[in-house]
Amino acid sequence: MMTHLLCSLALALAAEPGGDLSAHWPLYQDCLDASGNRHHGANRGVTFENGWAVFDGRSSHVEVAPDSIPMGTNDFTLSAWIQTDDQGTDVPGDILGKFDPTTRRGFNLLVQNFAGVTSSQSNWGNVLFGIDWGSEPIWTDRGLPGNAAWVAALTVFQGSLFAGTYEPGPEGRGEVYRFLGGGDWEDCGNPDGSNSVLSLAVYQGRLHAGTGRYRPGGSALPDSPNQTPGGHVFRYEG
Protein backbone atom coordinates (compact mmCIF):
# COMPACT_ATOMS: atom_id res chain seq x y z
CA MET A 1 0.00 0.00 0.00
CA MET A 2 1.22 3.48 -0.86
CA THR A 3 0.62 6.29 1.63
CA HIS A 4 0.49 9.91 0.48
CA LEU A 5 0.97 12.95 2.67
CA LEU A 6 -0.39 16.11 1.08
CA CYS A 7 0.07 19.39 2.91
CA SER A 8 -1.18 21.97 0.41
CA LEU A 9 -2.77 22.12 -3.02
CA ALA A 10 -3.39 25.27 -5.05
CA LEU A 11 -5.05 25.83 -8.42
CA ALA A 12 -4.84 29.03 -10.45
CA LEU A 13 -6.78 29.53 -13.68
CA ALA A 14 -5.75 32.74 -15.39
CA ALA A 15 -5.44 34.36 -18.81
CA GLU A 16 -2.24 36.13 -17.77
CA PRO A 17 0.62 35.26 -15.39
CA GLY A 18 -0.13 36.42 -11.87
CA GLY A 19 -3.87 35.93 -12.28
CA ASP A 20 -6.27 35.33 -9.42
CA LEU A 21 -6.12 32.16 -7.36
CA SER A 22 -9.08 29.91 -8.11
CA ALA A 23 -8.76 27.49 -5.21
CA HIS A 24 -6.40 26.65 -2.36
CA TRP A 25 -6.79 23.66 -0.07
CA PRO A 26 -4.18 23.93 2.76
CA LEU A 27 -5.31 20.52 4.10
CA TYR A 28 -3.99 21.21 7.58
CA GLN A 29 -7.06 19.99 9.44
CA ASP A 30 -9.91 20.05 6.94
CA CYS A 31 -10.72 20.17 3.21
CA LEU A 32 -11.94 23.76 3.04
CA ASP A 33 -10.95 26.15 0.25
CA ALA A 34 -8.89 29.06 1.63
CA SER A 35 -9.06 31.17 -1.56
CA GLY A 36 -12.40 32.73 -0.63
CA ASN A 37 -14.12 31.16 -3.65
CA ARG A 38 -15.84 28.48 -1.55
CA HIS A 39 -14.67 25.50 -3.61
CA HIS A 40 -14.74 23.38 -0.48
CA GLY A 41 -13.90 19.70 -0.70
CA ALA A 42 -15.78 16.75 0.76
CA ASN A 43 -13.60 14.46 2.89
CA ARG A 44 -13.70 10.86 1.66
CA GLY A 45 -11.64 8.97 4.22
CA VAL A 46 -8.74 11.43 4.61
CA THR A 47 -7.15 11.78 8.05
CA PHE A 48 -5.03 14.64 9.39
CA GLU A 49 -1.78 14.28 11.34
CA ASN A 50 0.53 17.11 12.43
CA GLY A 51 -0.80 19.51 9.81
CA TRP A 52 -0.76 16.96 6.96
CA ALA A 53 -3.57 15.29 5.08
CA VAL A 54 -2.93 11.53 5.00
CA PHE A 55 -4.32 9.42 2.13
CA ASP A 56 -4.34 5.63 2.39
CA GLY A 57 -3.38 5.09 -1.26
CA ARG A 58 -6.54 3.09 -1.94
CA SER A 59 -9.83 4.91 -1.53
CA SER A 60 -9.34 8.09 0.50
CA HIS A 61 -9.65 11.31 -1.48
CA VAL A 62 -11.02 14.85 -1.43
CA GLU A 63 -13.98 15.43 -3.73
CA VAL A 64 -14.82 18.86 -5.14
CA ALA A 65 -18.07 19.41 -7.03
CA PRO A 66 -17.24 18.87 -10.74
CA ASP A 67 -18.96 22.07 -11.90
CA SER A 68 -17.54 24.34 -9.21
CA ILE A 69 -14.36 25.14 -11.18
CA PRO A 70 -15.21 25.22 -14.90
CA MET A 71 -12.66 24.26 -17.51
CA GLY A 72 -11.55 27.11 -19.73
CA THR A 73 -9.12 27.67 -22.58
CA ASN A 74 -6.51 29.82 -20.82
CA ASP A 75 -3.24 28.81 -19.17
CA PHE A 76 -3.45 27.53 -15.62
CA THR A 77 -1.09 26.53 -12.82
CA LEU A 78 -1.18 23.68 -10.31
CA SER A 79 0.95 23.61 -7.17
CA ALA A 80 1.14 20.86 -4.54
CA TRP A 81 3.36 19.73 -1.67
CA ILE A 82 3.38 15.93 -1.34
CA GLN A 83 5.33 13.10 0.26
CA THR A 84 5.07 9.40 -0.59
CA ASP A 85 6.44 6.26 1.04
CA ASP A 86 10.13 5.74 0.29
CA GLN A 87 9.70 2.03 -0.39
CA GLY A 88 6.17 1.91 -1.71
CA THR A 89 5.35 -1.13 -3.83
CA ASP A 90 2.06 0.14 -5.23
CA VAL A 91 1.19 2.75 -7.87
CA PRO A 92 1.51 6.18 -6.18
CA GLY A 93 -1.50 7.62 -8.02
CA ASP A 94 -3.30 10.91 -8.57
CA ILE A 95 -2.59 14.29 -6.97
CA LEU A 96 -5.33 16.28 -8.72
CA GLY A 97 -7.66 15.35 -11.54
CA LYS A 98 -10.67 16.81 -13.33
CA PHE A 99 -12.03 14.80 -16.25
CA ASP A 100 -15.36 14.37 -18.05
CA PRO A 101 -15.41 10.94 -19.76
CA THR A 102 -18.41 11.91 -21.91
CA THR A 103 -16.70 14.86 -23.62
CA ARG A 104 -13.18 13.45 -22.96
CA ARG A 105 -12.03 16.76 -21.59
CA GLY A 106 -9.94 17.38 -18.51
CA PHE A 107 -6.51 17.05 -16.93
CA ASN A 108 -4.63 14.87 -14.48
CA LEU A 109 -1.57 15.47 -12.27
CA LEU A 110 -0.08 12.33 -10.75
CA VAL A 111 2.97 10.45 -9.52
CA GLN A 112 3.69 7.26 -11.45
CA ASN A 113 6.33 4.54 -11.30
CA PHE A 114 7.52 2.30 -14.12
CA ALA A 115 8.86 -1.11 -13.22
CA GLY A 116 11.65 -2.50 -15.39
CA VAL A 117 10.96 -5.20 -17.97
CA THR A 118 13.33 -7.80 -19.45
CA SER A 119 16.45 -5.73 -20.09
CA SER A 120 15.90 -2.30 -18.57
CA GLN A 121 14.89 -0.47 -15.40
CA SER A 122 12.93 2.70 -16.02
CA ASN A 123 13.04 5.77 -13.83
CA TRP A 124 11.17 5.23 -10.58
CA GLY A 125 8.80 7.90 -9.31
CA ASN A 126 7.86 10.31 -12.08
CA VAL A 127 5.61 13.37 -11.86
CA LEU A 128 3.29 13.28 -14.87
CA PHE A 129 0.74 15.73 -16.24
CA GLY A 130 -1.80 14.94 -18.92
CA ILE A 131 -4.49 17.00 -20.62
CA ASP A 132 -7.18 16.00 -23.10
CA TRP A 133 -9.53 18.35 -24.92
CA GLY A 134 -11.51 15.74 -26.82
CA SER A 135 -9.44 16.09 -29.98
CA GLU A 136 -8.20 13.19 -32.06
CA PRO A 137 -4.41 12.85 -32.34
CA ILE A 138 -2.87 13.67 -35.71
CA TRP A 139 0.34 11.92 -36.78
CA THR A 140 2.48 12.46 -39.87
CA ASP A 141 4.38 9.46 -41.25
CA ARG A 142 8.10 10.34 -41.41
CA GLY A 143 9.08 7.23 -43.32
CA LEU A 144 10.95 3.99 -42.69
CA PRO A 145 14.66 4.23 -41.82
CA GLY A 146 16.32 1.58 -44.00
CA ASN A 147 14.87 -1.89 -43.45
CA ALA A 148 14.05 -1.29 -39.79
CA ALA A 149 11.68 -3.65 -38.00
CA TRP A 150 12.13 -1.69 -34.77
CA VAL A 151 13.27 1.87 -34.12
CA ALA A 152 14.98 1.27 -30.78
CA ALA A 153 16.35 4.76 -30.10
CA LEU A 154 15.80 8.40 -31.01
CA THR A 155 17.82 11.48 -30.10
CA VAL A 156 18.56 14.99 -31.35
CA PHE A 157 22.15 15.95 -32.19
CA GLN A 158 23.25 19.28 -33.68
CA GLY A 159 19.65 20.08 -34.60
CA SER A 160 19.03 16.80 -36.47
CA LEU A 161 16.94 13.81 -35.46
CA PHE A 162 18.80 10.48 -35.31
CA ALA A 163 17.35 6.97 -35.08
CA GLY A 164 18.90 3.66 -34.03
CA THR A 165 17.34 0.51 -35.49
CA TYR A 166 17.05 -3.25 -35.43
CA GLU A 167 17.05 -4.74 -38.93
CA PRO A 168 16.14 -8.39 -39.62
CA GLY A 169 17.44 -10.92 -42.13
CA PRO A 170 20.82 -12.61 -42.80
CA GLU A 171 22.38 -9.28 -43.78
CA GLY A 172 20.43 -7.27 -41.23
CA ARG A 173 22.53 -4.89 -39.16
CA GLY A 174 21.43 -2.18 -36.78
CA GLU A 175 22.05 1.23 -38.31
CA VAL A 176 22.12 4.86 -37.25
CA TYR A 177 20.06 7.15 -39.48
CA ARG A 178 19.74 10.92 -39.71
CA PHE A 179 16.37 12.40 -40.65
CA LEU A 180 16.56 14.56 -43.79
CA GLY A 181 12.95 15.71 -43.95
CA GLY A 182 9.73 14.41 -45.46
CA GLY A 183 10.17 10.65 -45.29
CA ASP A 184 13.88 10.53 -46.11
CA TRP A 185 16.66 9.18 -43.88
CA GLU A 186 20.43 9.22 -44.38
CA ASP A 187 22.27 6.01 -43.39
CA CYS A 188 25.12 6.93 -41.02
CA GLY A 189 26.37 3.36 -40.78
CA ASN A 190 26.55 0.39 -38.45
CA PRO A 191 29.17 0.64 -35.69
CA ASP A 192 30.11 -3.04 -35.25
CA GLY A 193 28.01 -5.40 -37.39
CA SER A 194 25.48 -6.34 -34.69
CA ASN A 195 21.80 -6.40 -35.55
CA SER A 196 20.76 -3.47 -33.33
CA VAL A 197 21.65 0.04 -32.27
CA LEU A 198 19.75 0.02 -28.99
CA SER A 199 20.54 3.45 -27.57
CA LEU A 200 21.64 6.91 -28.65
CA ALA A 201 22.85 9.71 -26.38
CA VAL A 202 24.65 13.03 -26.65
CA TYR A 203 27.57 13.31 -24.22
CA GLN A 204 29.94 16.28 -24.03
CA GLY A 205 28.55 17.55 -27.32
CA ARG A 206 29.16 14.30 -29.23
CA LEU A 207 26.75 11.62 -30.44
CA HIS A 208 27.22 8.15 -28.92
CA ALA A 209 25.56 4.84 -29.84
CA GLY A 210 25.16 1.62 -27.85
CA THR A 211 24.90 -1.66 -29.78
CA GLY A 212 23.60 -5.11 -28.94
CA ARG A 213 22.17 -8.34 -30.28
CA TYR A 214 18.39 -8.19 -30.16
CA ARG A 215 16.50 -11.49 -29.99
CA PRO A 216 13.19 -10.79 -31.76
CA GLY A 217 11.82 -14.24 -30.90
CA GLY A 218 10.71 -12.75 -27.58
CA SER A 219 8.41 -10.45 -29.57
CA ALA A 220 6.96 -13.32 -31.65
CA LEU A 221 9.18 -12.44 -34.64
CA PRO A 222 11.61 -14.73 -36.49
CA ASP A 223 14.99 -14.91 -34.78
CA SER A 224 17.84 -12.97 -36.36
CA PRO A 225 20.58 -15.05 -38.04
CA ASN A 226 23.04 -12.25 -37.25
CA GLN A 227 24.99 -13.60 -34.25
CA THR A 228 27.35 -10.63 -33.77
CA PRO A 229 27.03 -9.86 -30.04
CA GLY A 230 27.46 -6.07 -30.00
CA GLY A 231 27.54 -4.59 -26.52
CA HIS A 232 29.85 -1.67 -27.30
CA VAL A 233 29.56 2.12 -27.07
CA PHE A 234 30.73 4.13 -30.07
CA ARG A 235 31.25 7.84 -30.67
CA TYR A 236 30.03 9.19 -33.99
CA GLU A 237 32.82 10.87 -35.94
CA GLY A 238 30.70 11.98 -38.90
Rank of each mutant, 00 (worst) to 15 (best):
residue 41 G to D: 04
residue 161 L to H: 02
residue 164 G to R: 03
residue 180 L to A: 14
residue 94 D to K: 09
residue 74 N to W: 12
residue 193 G to S: 11
residue 19 G to F: 10
residue 213 R to L: 07
residue 25 W to T: 08
residue 58 R to Y: 13
residue 231 G to A: 00
residue 191 P to K: 02
residue 128 L to C: 14
residue 106 G to N: 14
residue 37 N to M: 03
residue 236 Y to T: 00
residue 158 Q to S: 11
residue 61 H to F: 15
residue 90 D to N: 08
residue 22 S to T: 15
residue 179 F to R: 02
residue 168 P to V: 06
residue 236 Y to H: 04
residue 97 G to Y: 08
residue 85 D to L: 12
residue 236 Y to N: 01
residue 175 E to D: 05
residue 87 Q to E: 14
residue 119 S to Y: 15
residue 14 A to M: 08
residue 192 D to S: 05
residue 137 P to G: 06
residue 162 F to N: 01
residue 23 A to Y: 08
residue 166 Y to K: 00
residue 228 T to Y: 04
residue 38 R to L: 04
residue 39 H to N: 14
residue 110 L to Q: 09
residue 160 S to K: 11
residue 129 F to P: 07
residue 172 G to S: 08
residue 205 G to H: 08
residue 12 A to D: 05
residue 116 G to A: 10
residue 22 S to C: 12
residue 198 L to D: 11
residue 1 M to A: 13
residue 81 W to S: 01
residue 55 F to K: 03
residue 212 G to D: 08
residue 40 H to N: 15
residue 141 D to M: 01
residue 133 W to N: 12
residue 126 N to R: 14
residue 36 G to A: 06
residue 116 G to T: 05
residue 69 I to R: 06
residue 138 I to K: 12
residue 221 L to P: 02
residue 35 S to H: 02
residue 190 N to E: 05
residue 65 A to G: 04
residue 59 S to Y: 13
residue 52 W to T: 10
residue 194 S to R: 01
residue 21 L to W: 11
residue 216 P to R: 07
residue 3 T to K: 13
residue 7 C to N: 14
residue 9 L to M: 14
residue 150 W to K: 10
residue 61 H to I: 00
residue 155 T to Q: 11
residue 6 L to D: 01
residue 41 G to H: 07
residue 119 S to W: 13
residue 207 L to K: 05
residue 57 G to W: 03
residue 196 S to T: 15
residue 151 V to C: 12
residue 89 T to D: 12
residue 155 T to S: 13
residue 114 F to S: 09
residue 16 E to P: 00
residue 238 G to K: 00
residue 32 L to P: 04
residue 174 G to M: 03
residue 104 R to H: 13
residue 77 T to A: 05
residue 151 V to R: 10
residue 154 L to D: 05
residue 181 G to V: 06
residue 206 R to D: 01
residue 219 S to A: 15
residue 50 N to E: 13
residue 209 A to Y: 02
